[in-house]
Design a protein around this nucleic acid. Structure first.
Lengths: 149, 149, 149, 149
DNA sequence: TTTT
DNA sequence: TTTT
């Protein structure tokens, strides 16, 4: 309901490999961090400052498997998704929050020499980006987990 | 393939009613113009200048029918889609181009008093926006038309 | 440097009033939460599920003052910005993280009766949205704070 | 005015070199086409169909000079801007329209070996993307041209 | 932890 | 006219 929108658009580099987590033989998630960075010259010290922001990307099912297969640490990727902050309780019983990007579309930006003759980039009909939407649409169980892992 | 992206994000007001065009009993398109405007104060004349840009929105199938049912001239809408420039030949045999926005997601921004208790806003599972993607996905015939209308 | 992008696009409703925090007579931040929601019908229970996501919006300087002046709890707003996760230490010495949206462009979506003849919507030259970029550009001290507040 | 938004987000490859047009020693525009493509397998013929869409990018002043200096045909770029359709009269006195993307932010996505030690990617303070906004802000004359060129 |  |  309600005329709202929650959209994130990122271009960044993987800081680590895709980590898969299987719920059963059909449902899984892949997780990986990507870094975005901005830099500027400080007016006070005249030195270049670089700030890096890390984003926890979560991708589901078939899209996750494509990411695991084709993405490596260091690769550049375009990610579109939505922000989700999850609440969990740490081992001291404290409430904790972690924010992740639930990816529903992506496109690889690192050219792969070895991808030329093999299966390269996933597609969907609407655009040459991979859509995680359909694959996640029939995975309601994925939305039930509220455990940190 | 190819790591490209073609995305348009608009918030604007309908300049006219949604015009439907049926191909058969299952496939249709709806078309409507929306206006975006920007204004600024001219440094030369000190007067306020407003520029209005008109966008031709095209939406397909079920999404089109939802738009026709709930949108009226003047309403504000969020539209997401892609740019498509179509080539056609005018009655003098001249090549002409027209650019349209093929909408694949939208959300209504005008509160409807009468929508409160009736069917209000379309939804999809991924977000509270309507997705035209699924409905158009199985309508390949829609992509065959290259006629201006 | 580095060809990355960190962009968030939200349409949501304010869950509270804008809270201002002044650093000095020129530099300030405004903070307010906005909610986005999505809903769907569960295939298992057949009931409608609504998930609400809260986003902490941070806006600076002149843009903050405009928000404080014209926005109220419940209003709908378009916000564009970037994700920033800040690390802080709680009173037990634990490391904590909180994610906020640093807003650099916004546009009000709730029609205001009383705004019609008074100063309504902020503008900038590039578009009819308010840009927090320029105002924050000359406020480097704003970027030095790493305290939770 | 009015709570509207006109935003385009593209990732594509240059189909040609950047063409510069100088108005005077301070004001200029750069123009270049970028291609986005989508592909899918036809359900009818089972063959792969690729559709390419061409976008005319317009960038101003300092940003234009940066593009001219660092971009070449074939390079991949992220472009953010707004849609503008310009009306002009052809040599037969017919009204013609052409749609272009007025770029106000971009980031280069093709790694440049030779950019490593020289001035690589433009930046601004808000993010590691180049902003054409400031540079074009003080170039009101640029907005007066309504000539096709 | 990435990248330039 | 690009790219994969």
């Amino acid at each position: 309901m309600s005329g709202t929108l929650n959209k994130v658009i990122l271009i960044g580099n993987l800081g680590d490999e895709v980590k898969m987590h299987y719920f059963d033989d059909k449902n899984c998630v892949g997780r990986f961090p990507i870094a975005t960075s901005e830099s500027y010259v400080s007016k006070q010290t005249n030195e270049r400052i670089t700030n890096t922001e890390w984003h926890n990307i979560v991708v589901r099912n078939k899209a996750a498997e494509i990411c695991e297969k084709y993405l490596s640490k260091g690769d550049k990727i375009y990610v579109e998704g939505k922000i989700k902050t999850r609440k969990w309780t740490d081992d001291k019983g404290m409430e904790r929050y972690s924010t992740e990007i639930q990816c529903n579309e992506f496109t690889f930006l690192t050219p792969k020499a070895d991808q030329q003759n093999s299966a390269p980039q996933p597609q969907n009909t609407s655009q040459n980006t991979a859509s995680a939407q359909q694959t996640s649409a029939n995975a309601p169980v994925d939305d039930n987990d509220d455990l940190p892992f």
